[in-house]
Design a protein around this nucleic acid. Sequence first.
DNA 1: CCATGTGAACTAATTCACAGCG
DNA 2: CGCTGTGAATTAGTTCACATGG
Lengths: 253, 253
Amino acid sequence: MTRRHNRTRAERGIPEATVARLPVYLRALHSLQERGVATVSSEELATAAGVNSAKLRKDLSHLGSYGTRGVGYEVEYLVYQISRELGLTQDWVVAIIGVGNLGRALAGYGGFASRGFRVAALLDADESVVGERISGLTVRHIDDLESVVAEQGVSIAVLATPAAAAQSLCDRVVAAGVTSVLNFAPVVLSVPEGVDVRKVDLSIELQILAFHEQRKAGGPGEGGWAGELDGPGDRPRGEGPPGTKQYIEAVEA
Amino acid sequence: MTRRHNRTRAERGIPEATVARLPVYLRALHSLQERGVATVSSEELATAAGVNSAKLRKDLSHLGSYGTRGVGYEVEYLVYQISRELGLTQDWVVAIIGVGNLGRALAGYGGFASRGFRVAALLDADESVVGERISGLTVRHIDDLESVVAEQGVSIAVLATPAAAAQSLCDRVVAAGVTSVLNFAPVVLSVPEGVDVRKVDLSIELQILAFHEQRKAGGPGEGGWAGELDGPGDRPRGEGPPGTKQYIEAVEA
DNA sequence: CCATGTGAACTAATTCACAGCG
DNA sequence: CGCTGTGAATTAGTTCACATGG
């Protein structure tokens, strides 16, 4: 919040929206780097990252003044600066909790190893998967969670468990000292101050798409304005507007 | 922006931030419903959804006036209204493109079927998986993409392919008439006006966590302010500050 | 009397537009 | 001259706080 030195810039506090875009810029830069491009303008990089150039420049300006006026940005240098800002110049030890379909997919995901993330452990409660070897790691029993976290120095836990198990496992990893959690289970996790949680939720994404899809087709419901004037009083109870699937009964997965 | 009728509320145009939270509220409501709760206050629901109550009320107010002052919201009714707003009172036909680890995990994900999303097809380019049966569906060859989209009336495509294939497959599904894409490949997709794309990106999420994790440990880089005073001129070229992993060489996954 | 619904105040994020530097 | 970097203007989102109505 308050400045605590004479920091020339960056000044402790990059906007969250900017932080969320830095990885995108970084990926675009890597791709340029592979193609042997040495220098890039804000316009070009912005296009590659799918944003407009003003936003890109403003974002980068939060890190410092790393461009050259009249020229652009040196790709390699910018890659380094963004990597450093994101904390990718050091390794982060990751544990994946839950080795179902998703956990396996994550364990095999190349993107982990490539950028400073080292998967050090796979854990599961199911005896029948414990001991199995996946992507070079032996699945360990969830009882070992605390010792694994301590021994390996895990700082990021990836939760790929059923919803019902997520909160209590989250509590355990946090108690064991993990301060960042990436949650794939469809639940809202509560964690103490100082612990960061990020959520990846397929079904939420689909529902957002459905909203826009419906809108393209014209208004909510089937015929557009079912229930328009219903103040409390003429509420549909137990049935939707004619022709619609009624309510939603299925259980959460 | 300007009102264009005497619409009592909703007024065409729910803020994007609100849309993104509606699925969370919906999930919390379903969970209350399962526990037999009939009525809920904004305070309770907000807690369950992990937001504050003012935000929840403001969000719901964009849909209409569905609460009762002094009492709260009727769970069942609110479930219905949010579902309708999100377009979940109708079925959406989904095709999953790419049947690797991730595609399989997605195909088996219960959250699909449960809320108005019907996976109608699995497609892959790899001959060795074509014909395989997964979660009740036979994997079809990617050559059939256009006909599958047309026959099944697919409106949402889920891309779970390698990065290199994503854009051209995206082009194909869009050309075939799909107007919503959920992209798991680590690339920025470009699509024509009117097509919605949402991105789920593991490695971005991890990088955001790393940023905050690093911050907890105190400042970027190892020793805090490597390159502090470097205006252009004394840039590190080809090496990072002492002791840091240098640059990032690995390829994108 | 209590919890919703909402103007008003505030904070964050985006976009504009141009000064200024290489 | 061409591009970055950035104040200023705008727009979006959040939070406050309370009038309102069941």
